[in-house]
């Protein structure tokens, strides 16, 4: 069992009410250091509130959190020194330039002089905002604001990064830069990242862990592949047969013990098998029954499938 410090984030029974009702309800989860957690859920599910609770901006009504071993409700400032946040709304002061926004945050984080300047230049460069550094944020597009907000959250190289919909409003290049940044920070630098997003594809490629929230409750939590394996014991494999399967091929497929389900499609068939190891023998049997296999593709279930399955489970 890892100690609490190996877990960057721990929540146990965290509950928070607002006059309008419960926003986070008995939330418990642990996130090891260096992982990327995709925090998912419909609008109003409680994602932003969870980030605020973890960063000590809100206090739980019951339960408690630990961030890097500290309770944010008590040692909030110490926690916030080591975390960085990109809020849903970029939250830049429109009356200041991009550079001034970054400089004032650097100062508030105790970064000064050449170190601060070098770091700011580096981040502006990374998010492709160097040319606009001296412009007032007032005229910036949503994506440009988000770039500056990202740079601002990274000024002090935080150990934990909370990103609340960081790619909304970004163009494809910007979104890719953010996803690369997430990967790099987590894989190579051991940073822990909480990523709230409605883009499941992008969550799927980067997340080690996923949490699905619904009405403040945790509807699912775990590794996407494990959550998927629990729901779908079989692997879907697409067989490219160059056309719909002939009756003989289809009969052969249905007759195989390793194949649990067969679905003919326009130029081949989708089969469910226990795992990758079953694919060569399935291909061999198709060929033996006179079929031609132009290619195969495994379609493992991932975060996106789990998300929708969980939503269906909630609805049921």
């Amino acid at each position: 069992m890892p100690s609490s410090v190996e877990f960057a984030l721990r929540c146990s029974g965290v509950t928070r009410f607002f006059p309008s009702g419960v926003a986070v309800d008995d939330l418990s989860f642990d996130v090891p250091r260096g992982s990327v957690l995709a925090l998912l859920g419909n609008n109003g599910a409680g994602k932003t509130t969870t980030i605020r609770l973890l960063n000590g901006v809100l206090r739980p009504d019951s339960g408690s959190c630990r961030v890097l071993g500290l309770d944010p409700a008590i040692h909030g400032t110490d926690v916030r020194r080591r975390t960085g946040v990109v809020t849903e709304n970029a939250g830049l002061d429109d009356r200041l330039t991009a550079l001034e926004n970054l400089e004032s945050t650097a100062r508030l984080r105790g970064l000064r002089g050449k170190t601060a300047r070098a770091r700011i230049d580096d981040l502006l460069e990374r998010f492709d905002m160097s040319r606009q550094a001296g412009q007032l944020c007032q005229g910036f597009s949503t994506g440009q604001r988000r770039r500056v907000a990202l740079a601002r959250a990274l000024l002090h190289d935080p150990e934990v990064l909370f990103l609340d919909e960081p790619t909304s409003g970004l163009d494809p290049a910007g979104a890719r830069a953010v996803m690369e940044l997430i990967d790099h920070s987590a894989r190579e630098r051991g940073r822990t990242i909480v990523l709230c997003t409605h883009f499941l594809g992008e969550a799927g490629t980067s997340a080690d862990l996923m949490a699905v929230m619904h009405h403040g409750r945790l509807a699912a939590f775990g590794r996407p592949e494990e959550l998927a394996a629990a729901r779908w014991p079989f692997l879907d494999v697409y067989l490219d047969l160059g056309g719909p399967p002939t009756p003989e091929v289809e009969a052969t497929l249905r007759g195989l013990v390793t194949v649990r389900a067969v679905r003919p499609v326009a130029d081949g068939a989708l089969v469910s098998v226990p795992g990758r190891d079953a694919i060569p023998s399935v291909v061999a049997d198709v060929v033996a029954s006179g079929g031609r296999v132009y290619g195969t593709r495994s379609l493992p279930k991932g975060l996106e499938d789990v998300y929708f399955a969980v939503q269906q489970e909630i609805a049921a």
């Binding site: 901006v57 400032t77 916030r80 970029a90 939250g91 984080r109």
Partner: peptide, 8 residues
């Protein structure tokens, strides 16, 4: 909000 997320 972004100010509240700073160590201030």
């Amino acid at each position: 909000e972004s100010l509240l997320h700073l160590p201030v």
